[in-house]
């Protein structure tokens, strides 16, 4: 059984009611061209040495099953799923966090130690592991560590505060670099496009305007396929 499925099962099994799954819709106005299709998905631009390192990291296990489940539960408390773009589980945030914990070795100890702290604290207070505690109990554990004094550098704060800040960063980053997170954000780029300026309604919204003199110098996109020629002074003729 693949690990992601098992995480989904445990979360649903644990009765975390806030979590509802929705298949991510890959709708959109994708301008497909040969360019976008010409790359080799097996490599994602890695050199053979880089691929080898990724494979090596993938073969290692950093978190045991309980820890992965705890990360899954914690990540959905940090960023609850929301229609229509799902949440951290669909975005494979726990897997991403495990990979980063191996890829950047400095993250390993704060992550492992923080997870232990979470269960210890939860057991002490409520006699339950964090992942099986109620949402109310989980929040009671998190509230004191989730709003740290920003005047004090993070590395001078207690481990649990550092842990939570790290987890929050990884959860938000992991979600918003996923297909669903990018859809939630609304980002429209990373595909072939013809840039022809900021739409008028956006200019109006932000109270700025184009200077006609400036715009007159810019590319007229209807001429982009015409080969450039100049006169002797550098004035563009075509």
């Amino acid at each position: 059984m693949d690990r992601r499925k098992s995480i989904q099962t445990i979360i649903l099994g644990a009765g975390a009611s806030a979590i509802v799954f929705h298949g991510c819709k890959t709708e959109g106005d994708k301008t497909t061209t040969d360019i976008a299709h010409s790359s080799d998905p097996d490599f994602f631009g890695r050199t053979p040495e880089e691929l080898e390192r990724i494979e090596k990291l993938n073969a290692e296990t950093l978190f045991n099953e309980h820890e992965m489940e705890t990360i899954a539960v914690l990540s959905t408390v940090i960023l609850p799923p929301k229609e229509p773009h799902g949440g951290p589980i669909e975005a494979e945030v726990p897997e991403f966090i495990e990979f980063m914990g191996k890829d950047i070795p400095e993250l390993e100890t704060p992550l492992l130690g923080g997870l232990m702290w979470l269960d210890h604290k939860c057991n002490t207070e409520f006699g339950a592991e964090f992942k099986t505690a109620t949402l109310e109990q989980q929040k009671k554990i998190l509230d004191p560590i989730a709003y740290h004094d920003t005047e004090v550098p993070l590395d001078e704060q207690t481990l649990e505060i550092q842990f939570f800040a790290l987890m929050r960063n990884l959860v938000v980053s992991g979600y918003y670099t996923s297909k669903m997170g990018i859809a939630d954000l609304g980002y429209k780029g990373n595909m072939p496009n013809i840039w022809d300026g900021v739409p008028q309604d956006v200019l109006d919204q932000h109270g700025v305007e184009y200077d006609p003199e400036w715009i007159a110098k810019c590319i007229d996109q209807s001429t982009r396929a015409t080969i450039a020629t100049w006169d002797a002074e550098g004035n563009l003729l075509t």
Binding site: S39, P41, I54, T177
Partner: peptide, 15 residues
């Protein structure tokens, strides 16, 4: 195509 990174999405990589 093997070495190309242009137009890759972040989620194509585990990191």
């Amino acid at each position: 195509p093997k070495t190309m990174t242009q137009l890759k999405w972040p989620y194509e990589s585990p990191r």
